[in-house]
Simulated assay, not measured.
Amino acid sequence: MDLSFNAEERAFQDEVRGFIAKNLTEEMKRATALTPSVFSDPDIGMAWQRALHRRGWGAPGWPVEYGGPVWTPAQRWIFETESARAGVPNVNVMGVKMVGPVIIGFGSPEQKNFYLPRILSGEDYWCQGYSEPGSGSDLSSLKTRAVRDGDDYIINGTKIWTTHAHHANRMFALVRTSDGPRQQDGISFILIDMKTPGITTRPILTIGGDHEVNQVFFDDVRVPVANRVGDEGKGWTYGKYLLEFERGSGIASAKLREGLKAIAELAESDLTGRAIDSPDIAARISEVEIDIDALEMTELRVLSALQTGQNPGAVSSILKLRNSEIRQAVTRLGVDVIGHDALAVEPMRPLYKLNHEPAVPEEMLTVVPEYLNGRAYTIFGGTSEIQRDIIAKMMLGI
């Protein structure tokens, strides 16, 4: 595969670099570097989303008629790579990369006209209502129920591991509207205003010390039927479509490469006593780098398919599986590189708002929180076991 850029692509690369230099503040960059999660806090991430929106770059991958930029696959790759290299914040992934494509693909004209501009501008901040206690990997067994009452649904139940529900003003959720011969039957895809009476959000603190996820309770929550996306009972189809975009619509290799680069620089520094001199550390860095190269090639193939209007398909499970495993490999490597300094604990969050001297140098501050936060990589968005099942059935015919 020829990855050399032509003159037009090099000019676009310069344009992206110029945009980042003009709009990425030192505050945003430092906050992103000191965020252990793959999700940026809204005050950082949405500021970047608004800057992208002003430039017309707020939704790479969206059709042009809905506000997506007119980019070739090479330009999309350049944008993602330069963004990772510069350390830009993550935008609201739930909006741009997840519910947005579902609304574009299955939403009514009224839903498209109302929600899509608000996603682009950052006016709406979304969370995902999928998992429930007892319905995680077996998502089709979900029990949160929506009962039709005139022009409304009345929703009762609970969702768990709901990332940034404490920040979000909107949720897209899978709810059961009827019962059928299969568990997947009777599930509908609903858009919910998080300020609706009857919604309670309770925090869950993770082992890394972060308040990232929550449990959300619905007690007689009244939601208009007009907020249902597509047909009643077809939510399982729309939910699977969304997961393909969650797992396969990004360029994870660029950020993985920057993460590995940061660990390699630590290993070469006096802060770690030149951990790179350990043959084991040096070999593992090389092994992870090779894995990132392989992932990058697969991402480029998927990116080309997306650019022609195709959804990622089952190959998105390969991307999700390998991205998760490589992320964990990078974070494990980081903990081994810093050695005894991994015993230091900094409980305050967010780390970029620390007002005291941390126990370890700032370059090491996120290593352990990222490692602990990263234990969930092989669980959220579909466990690795589920991804292997999908690959076996859809790609290998087993």
Rank of each mutant, 00 (worst) to 15 (best):
E8F: 00
V16Y: 05
T32V: 06
V38H: 15
W71E: 02
A84M: 09
P101S: 08
I103H: 06
I103W: 02
I104N: 05
P109S: 06
F114D: 09
S140P: 09
T144N: 02
V147M: 12
D151M: 03
D152A: 11
T158H: 00
H166D: 14
A168R: 04
S178F: 01
G180P: 08
P181Q: 03
D185T: 02
M194F: 06
T206Y: 10
G209L: 07
G209V: 06
H211Y: 15
F217I: 15
D219R: 13
D219G: 08
D220V: 07
V221G: 06
D231M: 08
A254T: 04
R257W: 11
E258G: 13
L260M: 11
K261Q: 11
E265F: 11
A267G: 04
A267C: 06
A267Q: 05
E268P: 01
R274L: 02
E287Q: 02
A294T: 14
L295I: 14
S304Y: 07
S304P: 12
Q307I: 09
P312K: 06
R332I: 12
V335E: 07
V335S: 03
V337M: 01
I338G: 04
A344C: 03
K353G: 05
E362P: 01
E370C: 15
R375K: 12
I391M: 14
I391L: 14
L396M: 14
